[in-house]
């Protein structure tokens, strides 16, 4: 499954993996903003962005092809609009749509491929994203796999009892049962939390220090992006 691969990537040990998540998140935002404001048709700039991303992926020891193929998930959507744009006679813009969305996706993957979920959620939290939202993100991610597996098993079970079983009501029933199981699971989790002394508040982990190497990393990214943006 897609997110399991990313999870595995994020547990690497390259120097990029060791950078403070806040530095990486900030670098991602800088890159995206710079990319977003690059004018269509500045082809050299796009090439330079791609090179920057490849270098970073190399530094992180992530598979370039794996990254690219995952980032390509966005392409069907982009391609549709790019075609429409092409059709209306604006080929530069069409190309830019595809390029920008693909490069943005790759950059986001580089962040989550080098930072475990706990890292980037901690970064978001230190930027005062509401704690409640952070907790929900963590819980959703934690149980994604468990519940998706349940769907798979239920679908198989339905298939085993009749290969032609298809129907609106059947699907609705499946969703209903899935809901019920999820609800009971949530109850179970809550029980397990109470059993270990939960008193309505998660005790947050202390933030790690922001080191000078993190600052150096961020400023290098900043300089690189701005240079490309201004010069090309």
């Amino acid at each position: 499954m897609h997110h399991l691969v990313i999870d595995r990537w994020s547990r690497g040990s390259s120097s990029l993996h060791q950078r403070d998540p806040r530095a990486k998140l900030a670098a991602l935002l800088v890159f995206l903003v710079v990319l977003s404001t690059t004018r269509p048709g500045a082809q050299w700039a796009f090439v330079a962005y791609a090179v920057l991303l490849i270098l970073t992926a190399n530094l992180a020891r992530l598979p370039i092809l794996g990254l690219a193929s995952r980032a390509a998930l966005v392409l069907p959507f982009s391609a549709t609009f790019a075609l429409l744009t092409w059709w209306s006679g604006d080929s530069l813009r069409a190309l830019a749509l595809a390029e920008k969305s693909f490069l943005s996706g790759t950059a986001a993957l580089l962040l989550v491929g080098t930072t475990p979920l706990t890292g980037w959620t901690a970064a978001l939290e230190s930027w005062r994203v509401p704690r409640m939202l952070i907790l929900v993100i963590q819980f959703v991610y934690r149980y994604l796999f468990v519940i998706a597996e349940q769907v798979q098993r239920m679908r198989w079970a339905a298939l085993c009892r009749g290969p032609k079983q298809r129907g609106f009501r059947l699907a609705a029933g499946l969703v209903g049962v899935l809901f019920a199981r999820s609800w009971q699971r949530a109850d179970g989790i809550y029980h397990a939390m109470l059993a270990r002394g939960f008193r309505g508040r998660f005790v947050p982990a202390p933030p790690a220090p922001f080191r000078s190497s993190d600052a150096l990393f961020l400023s290098t990214c900043l300089a690189g992006c701005l240079a490309i943006r201004m010069l090309l």
């Binding site: 979920l117 706990t118 963590q138 819980f139 934690r142 179970g188 989790i189 397990a192 059993a195």
Partner: peptide
């Protein structure tokens, strides 16, 4: 209490 379903017990990241 160690619950039957470990997935319910292990909820932290």
């Amino acid at each position: 209490v160690v619950f039957q379903d470990s997935d319910e017990q292990l909820f932290m990241p």
